[in-house]
Structure formats: C-alpha cells, structure tokens
Amino acid sequence: MGETDFRKTVKQQYQELLENCRIQMDRLDRELPPPREDFQSLLTESGVSRRDFLKWTSLMTAALMLPPVFKPMVAKAAENFSRLPIVWLHFAECTGCSESLLRSSHPDVASILLDTISLEYHETIMAAAGDQAEQCLEKALQDFPGKFICVIEGAIPRGLNGQYMRLGPKGKTGLEIGKEVTSKAAATIAIGACAVNGGIPAANPNPTDAVGAGKALGISTVNIAGCPPNAVNFVGTLLYYLMFGALPPLDSQGRPVWAYGKRIHDVCERRPHYDAGEFVEEWGDEGARKGWCLYKVGCKGPYTYANCGHLRFNQAISWPVMAGHGCIGCTENGFWDKMAPLEKPLEAATIGGGEKTVDDVGIALTALTVAGVAAHGAFTALRHAGSEKKETPAHSEE
C-alpha cells in the first residue's frame, strides 16, 4: 500500500469513527435523562470563558489520542456529562479518591464537570442515610438498568466469605453489594489503587484477603489507577464512553492507554539530570536544592506508567516529583509492597538490580531494559563523579 492509499484508508477510518460517534451521541439524547444543569451557564457563572472551554476541549481531544476533528464531539460529550447516571460504591478505602475529585481551590472545566455529575448514589456526599440511602440505590438500579456506570472505590475483602465487611441497614457484605450492582451496570470503573488491585488494604499480611474489585467480583473493570488518581483521567474516561458508547483501549492492567501509556520517567522534568548523572543523594543536600534527579532517594518513575507529570495536580500547579519527592509507583499493581522501601531505589532492595521486583510489578519492560536503567544511572553517576574529580585539586582532599 502506497503512502497516498494509506492516508486515504486512515482518513476513511476516522470518518467512520466520527459517524459512529454522532450516532452514539444521538442515541444518548434519546435514552438518557435530560441534563440536570445548563453546562454553558455553569461555565459562565464559574468564570470560565468560551475560549477557555474550547482550549480545554482541544487539550482533552489530544489527551484521548483523537484527531482535532473530534473536538466538537468532546464538547458535546462535556455538555451531556450530567446525563450519565453514576452509582458510586465505597468499600475498604480512605475516601481519598472521592476527596481528590470533590475538592477544588478554583473551578476549571474538569471540576465543573464533576460538580454536575449525576451521582444517583454516593455514600460520602448524599444526604440520605440508612433505609433512605438503601432506597436510593434500589431506585437507581430499577430506573437505569444497563445504562448507569458503576464506580467502585476501595478494595473488597474476601476473607470469611466477605464477613470482614458488612454495609447498610441489611448488613450485606461488600461482595454481595458489588455483585448485585455491577451485574446491572453498563460498565464498571475501579477508581484508585485500592479498587484497582487492593492497594494498602491488600498489603502484607492482608488478614482480610482484600483484593481489587475486578478480582473479587470476577468482572472486567476499567482501572483508573493511582493513590489518588488524577481527576482528569476519570473525567476523560467518562467522556470517551459518552462519545463512543464503549470503553477506551486498555493496557494489560486494564488502565486506559491514553492516560497510562507512558512512563513517568520518560516525561519527567528532572530526566535531564538523570541523563547527566546528577542525583539527590540525601534529603536537603545541594542536589535537592538544585532540583536534581530523585532516583537515588527512591523515585520509582522508571518503573511507573502514568501521566502525573503531564497533568499534574491541584489545577495543574504541581506534582510529587516537582514538589521534591520521588514517585512511589502508586499506579502499579501491589505498589505498597513491591515498590518498598519507598525512599530507596529498587536496586538497593532486591538482587539483580531490581529486575525481579520490576517483573513482579508487571510493567511491560524487559529485564534487559530494567537492568539498563540501573546500569545507565550508575554509568552517568560515575561519569559525573569523574568530571568533578578532574576539577578538584588533589591537595583539597583531607
């Protein structure tokens, strides 16, 4: 196939995808409840201009790995965001994921979308309690069978047939509630490390046999990993579902590729210091003050897939590495155990330069590549030390 034919084929595929997107959006207009809020009015009231919204639409279209022709569809999906029913379940967790989504120092488009989200059931923010809360959940399952998205926050204990967790006025186990709700959902999203793979509740010795939602319930989930995850990754996944009526392409760990397709290490602003062999050796040293690489004080960026450095947190103000602490690998399976100790490099804690640990984490890196990370870091450090030695007079050593 020649280049011209290839371009025509790609263009045709995008045109078909765009048409399918239009069909899906029309179907939602017919099937879903009317919007609860006037989205454009909310933008205006929050001080977000039309220009800001269009800029956000462009950025989100690119983030979802779609061509610019899809920008109107992203905008329409955002306007219909409040029409998608959400049933949000809490299990073994700290509620930090909900807190990170709900708290905002000043409004941006993503936070405004989350303000309009159609939460039919969410124990943390709903006014109802006890029997009233139970009725809200039952009503949502009756009103929107096969149309709502189930969001699960927290690990699910399997020990003693789920007896470690009983919830609600009827004392159902987390396993029972999870199976009942997800069986009627259009799709299930596991949000946060605990729901994705058990997180801290599943850390050794894990006496309750807590695991991620998908494993506990025997279902496929879209995994928005992180402790907590970035709100944009959750918003983008819902926008994709609204646009295409399907879930976004996922990696081997069930995470959206558009959000978790690159390593922290590859887009880190401290990467040039890594390549130059300039490392923070201990907290507060000269390297720390100069913003050097945090690998030697435990940064797990070379082993972690996420877009934290690109999106950042708190309205894109900063992120952990920028603030001065290494990545702890919280988007990877079993990070609490497998990335430990969190403030030491993996090669200092495992035999063979960290290869075995990294393989256990399940990242798509070959052992050779992982060994190369440690070897490259050691080589650049030696090179940097050698250059310093040449510049230092011999008589200065005492």
Rank of each mutant, 00 (worst) to 15 (best):
P249V: 13
K262H: 07
Q132F: 13
A128N: 11
P248T: 10
A190C: 09
A140I: 05
R166T: 07
P205W: 13
A202W: 02
G198F: 04
W258H: 12
C150E: 14
D209Y: 10
L141D: 13
A187K: 05
A216I: 06
I224K: 09
A185R: 01
T237N: 11
A187D: 01
A190T: 03
V211H: 01
N230F: 06
P249K: 12
D209F: 12
G245H: 05
A231V: 15
I224P: 06
G198M: 04
I177M: 05
S252R: 14
G159A: 07
I177S: 01
C150S: 12
P256K: 06
R263D: 04
N223C: 12
E138H: 15
F244V: 10
T188D: 01
M243G: 03
E153A: 14
A185C: 06
A246C: 10
G159N: 11
K147W: 09
H265T: 01
N206C: 10
A186Q: 10
D266H: 12
K147F: 08
A195S: 06
P256H: 04
T173Q: 06
W258D: 02
A127W: 13
A133E: 15
K184A: 14
P145K: 07
R166I: 09
Y260K: 03
V257W: 04
G168L: 04
A210T: 10
C150M: 06
P248H: 06
L217W: 00
Y240R: 06
I156Q: 00
Q253I: 05
A213E: 00
N161S: 12
A128F: 05
H122L: 13
F234M: 09
P228C: 12
N204G: 08
G261V: 05
N230M: 13
G154T: 08
A129H: 14
P228G: 13
H122D: 14
P228D: 09
E120A: 12
T188Q: 04
I200P: 01
K139R: 12
Y121F: 15
Y260N: 01
